[in-house]
Design a protein around this nucleic acid. Structure first.
Lengths: 207, 207
DNA sequence: GGCTTTCCGGACCGGTCGGTCCACAACGAC
DNA sequence: GTCGTTGTGGACCGACCGGTCCGGAAAGCC
């Protein structure tokens, strides 16, 4: 309505960086989940006071939703960079999954914030269901784009695009839940390797 | 130590059915997750008093672990029946996934209790990580058994067994998290169909 | 300088949480 | 019957939860 980013600026200015705090909050929820993270934890980690937190974000639910939104936007940016705007077809998909590989290798394996919390809060927060659905769509679109390039390169049959896109989405979710559930690194890597192998195998054209 | 199932039977006998209560508890945790299910909820639904509950199961954590154990044992029985002791190769895998199909069609889609809670309680309950891992192993073994029969039938190449088993585990987890996260029925079914299609396609021998 | 507006720290709130305790009820053994 | 043992209901507990509120601090505007 009124100025989009002039923000009138009257009264005492905010002392904290809105985005940085949100990053910290994402981190916290990502580590422990929604239920196991208390507002007290958030106060402690961000260094802010409750009133600042509630003044800026409204409620724990709203804060979580804002944080998740930020997380998903980041993730979607990655999808666009690698899958949508890539140039190498199947190799782009490999690059995308190397992000998963990285997650699997960390000592603190957290998986995906959206996956971890989607099941936990499904019943209480219908907005989350929508956000997850939109995110799956984004992933699927990304895979479809990369596979379309692969078709142009003659590595994939055109009529397999839809099935493969779906399968890749399912695979990404499966790997995420494995990592988020604490599966050992080599088990995750083995599953990832199998997924990559079966993506390359059984195509119409030669390798 | 002393009698394994004679149980001495002295004092007032327990008035409730241990297994039936556990089933109810599984149901409750499955519906709402661990954090969102309070002991009060459990008292209300089972009709038992807190003291009976705590007397029989110890704590909320222990109760959950017992319930999950029961859930997983049930699931493992299904795996054994269909996958390990089946006779039809790939068709057995189809039958197994028709259980997923059923879950997807229910109005109240809950997915898999283990998947839903694995991410939620990973940090607080290391036993859960072990249970999930063992369950993934059981699934993988089941798929491997079914695929081995498929090799005998000439429908699958022997050197693909491991990769396909891994991929099927990942797929099952991915579908479970989709359902548990509230994805619409047709989206789940589409992903399931794609998984089935790619299992059948690109094999060495003709269909 | 005053004045207004906003932000901040921390005390505070009612409610709910997981868990305990105890008086009493219901059985087997004798 | 009495006794020993165990199960049961419900009152109760301290801790912690998400959330509110208020007095003071820090800025822009005049």
């Amino acid at each position: 309505m009124a100025g989009t980013d002039t923000t009138a600026q009257v009264g005492r200015p905010r002392e904290f960086d809105h985005e940085a705090v949100l990053d910290t909050v994402v981190d916290l929820f990502w580590d422990r989940g929604f239920g196991a993270t208390s507002m007290g934890d958030i106060v402690a980690r961000t260094g802010l006071s409750k009133s600042s937190l509630y003044g800026a974000f409204g409620s724990k639910d709203a804060l979580f939703e804002t944080a998740l939104d930020r997380y998903l936007a980041d993730h979607r940016r990655t999808i666009d960079e690698i899958l949508t705007n890539g140039s190498k077809g199947l190799d782009d998909i490999d690059v995308f999954f190397s992000g998963v590989e990285e997650q699997a290798g960390l000592t603190e394996r957290r998986g995906c914030l959206a996956v971890n919390t989607a099941t936990e809060r499904r019943t209480t927060e219908p907005a989350l269901v929508q956000m997850s659905a939109r995110h799956r769509d984004a992933m699927r679109d990304g895979f479809t784009a990369a596979l379309t390039r692969a078709v142009d390169l003659g590595v994939v049959d055109a009529d397999q695009i839809d099935d493969l896109s779906n399968l890749l989405v399912t695979t990404a979710l499966g790997l995420a839940v494995m990592i988020g559930g604490g599966a050992p690194t080599d088990e995750v890597l083995a599953h990832l390797a199998s997924a990559r192998a079966s993506l390359r195998s059984g195509r119409g054209s030669a390798e």
